[in-house]
Protein backbone atom coordinates (compact mmCIF):
# COMPACT_ATOMS: atom_id res chain seq x y z
CA UNK A 1 0.00 0.00 0.00
CA UNK A 2 1.53 3.28 -1.07
CA UNK A 3 -1.05 5.64 0.44
CA UNK A 4 -0.80 6.04 4.16
CA UNK A 5 -4.05 5.75 6.05
CA UNK A 6 -3.92 9.06 7.85
CA UNK A 7 -3.42 10.91 4.56
CA UNK A 8 -6.49 12.87 3.43
CA UNK A 9 -8.09 11.96 0.11
CA UNK A 10 -9.39 15.20 -1.41
CA UNK A 11 -11.66 13.84 -4.17
CA UNK A 12 -14.05 15.96 -6.25
CA UNK A 13 -16.59 18.61 -5.30
CA UNK A 14 -19.99 16.95 -5.30
CA UNK A 15 -22.89 19.30 -4.53
CA UNK A 16 -26.01 17.36 -3.51
CA UNK A 17 -29.40 18.38 -4.93
CA UNK A 18 -31.17 17.76 -1.62
CA UNK A 19 -28.86 20.03 0.41
CA UNK A 20 -30.85 23.01 1.68
CA UNK A 21 -27.86 25.33 1.25
CA UNK A 22 -24.26 25.20 0.00
CA UNK A 23 -21.36 26.90 1.74
CA UNK A 24 -18.23 27.12 -0.42
CA UNK A 25 -14.74 28.23 0.56
CA UNK A 26 -12.19 28.43 -2.26
CA UNK A 27 -8.71 29.81 -2.67
CA UNK A 28 -7.40 31.35 -5.91
CA UNK A 29 -7.87 29.06 -8.90
CA UNK A 30 -9.82 26.66 -6.72
CA UNK A 31 -12.83 28.73 -7.77
CA UNK A 32 -12.59 27.07 -11.22
CA UNK A 33 -13.33 23.68 -9.65
CA UNK A 34 -16.33 25.30 -7.94
CA UNK A 35 -17.66 26.75 -11.19
CA UNK A 36 -17.24 23.37 -12.90
CA UNK A 37 -19.00 21.47 -10.11
CA UNK A 38 -22.01 23.82 -10.10
CA UNK A 39 -22.19 24.23 -13.91
CA UNK A 40 -25.77 23.92 -15.15
CA UNK A 41 -27.13 23.80 -11.60
CA UNK A 42 -28.48 27.33 -11.18
CA UNK A 43 -30.99 26.11 -8.60
CA UNK A 44 -28.16 25.05 -6.31
CA UNK A 45 -26.21 28.27 -6.91
CA UNK A 46 -29.24 30.33 -5.88
CA UNK A 47 -28.86 28.92 -2.34
CA UNK A 48 -25.06 28.97 -2.25
CA UNK A 49 -22.66 31.24 -0.37
CA UNK A 50 -19.14 31.48 -1.82
CA UNK A 51 -16.16 32.69 0.25
CA UNK A 52 -13.18 33.30 -2.07
CA UNK A 53 -9.56 34.17 -1.41
CA UNK A 54 -8.77 36.60 -4.25
CA UNK A 55 -6.84 39.86 -4.66
CA UNK A 56 -8.50 43.16 -3.80
CA UNK A 57 -10.20 44.54 -6.91
CA UNK A 58 -10.46 41.21 -8.71
CA UNK A 59 -13.69 40.74 -10.64
CA UNK A 60 -16.42 38.35 -9.53
CA UNK A 61 -15.71 35.10 -11.37
CA UNK A 62 -18.18 34.19 -14.10
CA UNK A 63 -20.40 31.13 -13.72
CA UNK A 64 -21.51 31.60 -10.11
CA UNK A 65 -25.13 32.43 -11.02
CA UNK A 66 -27.18 33.71 -8.13
CA UNK A 67 -24.69 32.72 -5.42
CA UNK A 68 -23.84 35.21 -2.68
CA UNK A 69 -20.16 35.97 -3.38
CA UNK A 70 -17.69 37.30 -0.81
CA UNK A 71 -14.09 38.11 -1.72
CA UNK A 72 -11.37 38.17 0.95
CA UNK A 73 -7.78 39.32 0.49
CA UNK A 74 -6.01 36.50 2.36
CA UNK A 75 -6.46 32.96 3.58
CA UNK A 76 -6.69 34.13 7.19
CA UNK A 77 -9.44 36.68 6.49
CA UNK A 78 -11.37 34.20 4.34
CA UNK A 79 -11.23 31.53 7.03
CA UNK A 80 -12.47 34.00 9.64
CA UNK A 81 -15.49 34.68 7.42
CA UNK A 82 -15.91 30.94 6.69
CA UNK A 83 -16.00 30.25 10.43
CA UNK A 84 -18.70 32.88 10.92
CA UNK A 85 -20.81 31.39 8.10
CA UNK A 86 -20.41 27.91 9.62
CA UNK A 87 -21.56 29.13 13.03
CA UNK A 88 -24.81 30.45 11.52
CA UNK A 89 -25.43 27.57 9.12
CA UNK A 90 -28.31 25.13 9.56
CA UNK A 91 -28.40 21.36 9.13
CA UNK A 92 -28.84 20.49 5.49
CA UNK A 93 -26.04 22.87 4.49
CA UNK A 94 -23.35 21.11 2.51
CA UNK A 95 -19.79 22.47 2.71
CA UNK A 96 -17.37 22.50 -0.24
CA UNK A 97 -13.66 23.38 -0.23
CA UNK A 98 -11.29 23.86 -3.19
CA UNK A 99 -7.72 25.07 -3.32
CA UNK A 100 -4.13 24.05 -2.66
CA UNK A 101 -3.25 21.20 -0.33
CA UNK A 102 -2.20 23.59 2.44
CA UNK A 103 -5.46 25.53 2.08
CA UNK A 104 -7.53 22.31 2.20
CA UNK A 105 -5.52 21.20 5.25
CA UNK A 106 -6.42 24.33 7.18
CA UNK A 107 -10.00 24.89 5.93
CA UNK A 108 -11.07 21.28 6.48
CA UNK A 109 -9.74 21.45 10.05
CA UNK A 110 -12.03 24.47 10.55
CA UNK A 111 -15.00 22.50 9.17
CA UNK A 112 -14.21 19.43 11.30
CA UNK A 113 -14.03 21.62 14.41
CA UNK A 114 -17.58 22.82 13.62
CA UNK A 115 -18.88 19.25 13.76
CA UNK A 116 -19.14 18.55 10.04
CA UNK A 117 -18.75 14.84 9.40
CA UNK A 118 -18.93 12.41 6.50
CA UNK A 119 -20.87 13.39 3.40
CA UNK A 120 -21.54 16.90 4.75
CA UNK A 121 -18.16 18.00 3.34
CA UNK A 122 -16.70 17.67 -0.16
CA UNK A 123 -13.20 18.78 -1.17
CA UNK A 124 -11.11 19.12 -4.34
CA UNK A 125 -7.40 19.76 -4.74
CA UNK A 126 -6.67 22.52 -7.19
CA UNK A 127 -3.24 24.03 -7.24
CA UNK A 128 0.14 23.08 -5.90
CA UNK A 129 0.63 19.99 -3.73
CA UNK A 130 2.57 22.02 -1.20
CA UNK A 131 1.82 20.86 2.31
CA UNK A 132 1.04 22.41 5.65
CA UNK A 133 3.52 21.01 8.17
CA UNK A 134 3.79 21.30 11.93
CA UNK A 135 7.21 21.06 13.58
CA UNK A 136 6.73 18.46 16.31
CA UNK A 137 9.52 20.00 18.38
CA UNK A 138 8.41 23.65 18.66
CA UNK A 139 4.80 23.15 17.37
CA UNK A 140 5.32 25.89 14.76
CA UNK A 141 3.03 25.70 11.68
CA UNK A 142 4.38 26.22 8.18
CA UNK A 143 2.24 26.70 5.07
CA UNK A 144 3.28 25.83 1.53
CA UNK A 145 6.09 23.39 2.31
CA UNK A 146 7.21 22.08 -1.08
CA UNK A 147 10.38 20.15 -0.29
CA UNK A 148 11.55 17.69 2.35
CA UNK A 149 13.87 17.96 4.28
CA UNK A 150 13.69 21.65 5.17
CA UNK A 151 14.61 23.90 8.10
CA UNK A 152 11.81 24.85 10.52
CA UNK A 153 11.13 28.55 10.06
CA UNK A 154 10.40 28.85 13.81
CA UNK A 155 13.15 26.90 15.61
CA UNK A 156 15.62 26.11 12.84
CA UNK A 157 15.71 22.31 13.31
CA UNK A 158 16.10 20.38 10.04
CA UNK A 159 12.82 18.53 9.45
CA UNK A 160 11.66 15.62 7.33
CA UNK A 161 7.94 15.37 6.69
CA UNK A 162 6.68 12.15 8.22
CA UNK A 163 3.83 10.39 6.39
CA UNK A 164 1.43 11.18 9.19
CA UNK A 165 -1.41 13.69 8.91
CA UNK A 166 -3.68 15.25 11.56
CA UNK A 167 -7.10 16.46 10.45
CA UNK A 168 -7.51 18.30 13.75
CA UNK A 169 -4.35 20.33 13.13
CA UNK A 170 -4.70 20.25 9.34
CA UNK A 171 -1.02 19.42 8.99
CA UNK A 172 1.63 16.79 8.39
CA UNK A 173 4.21 16.07 11.06
CA UNK A 174 7.74 17.47 10.66
CA UNK A 175 10.41 15.58 12.64
CA UNK A 176 14.13 16.24 13.09
CA UNK A 177 15.94 14.89 10.01
CA UNK A 178 19.44 14.55 11.40
CA UNK A 179 19.07 13.66 15.08
CA UNK A 180 21.12 10.46 14.66
CA UNK A 181 23.73 12.06 12.39
CA UNK A 182 23.85 15.83 12.91
CA UNK A 183 24.29 17.75 9.67
CA UNK A 184 23.76 14.70 7.46
CA UNK A 185 20.52 15.18 5.53
CA UNK A 186 18.74 12.82 3.13
CA UNK A 187 18.45 13.94 -0.50
CA UNK A 188 15.77 16.58 -1.02
CA UNK A 189 12.53 15.60 -2.72
CA UNK A 190 9.50 17.66 -3.82
CA UNK A 191 5.90 16.80 -2.95
Amino acid sequence: MSEITSRPIWGKLDPADQASAHLVCAEGHGIEAVVAAFAGRDGLLSRATVVHVAPVGAARPAGLGGAAYHRHPSRATALTAFRAHLARAKMGTQVHLAGSEAFLDEASAVAVACGIVGDGLTTELSGPATRRVQCVHCKGMMDEVAVTPFACSHCGINLTVRDHYSRRLGAFMGVCADAEAPGVLPAASRF
Binding site: A16, Q18, A19, S20, M91, G92, V117, G118, D119, G120
Partner: peptide, 10 residues
Amino acid sequence: ARAAGWPEAN
Protein backbone atom coordinates in the same frame (compact mmCIF):
# COMPACT_ATOMS: atom_id res chain seq x y z
CA ALA B 1 -34.28 14.41 7.50
CA ARG B 2 -32.66 13.24 4.25
CA ALA B 3 -35.08 15.36 2.23
CA ALA B 4 -33.90 18.36 4.24
CA GLY B 5 -30.29 17.54 3.33
CA TRP B 6 -29.14 15.85 6.54
CA PRO B 7 -26.12 13.60 5.96
CA GLU B 8 -26.39 9.92 6.93
CA ALA B 9 -23.60 10.37 9.49
CA ASN B 10 -25.87 12.63 11.58
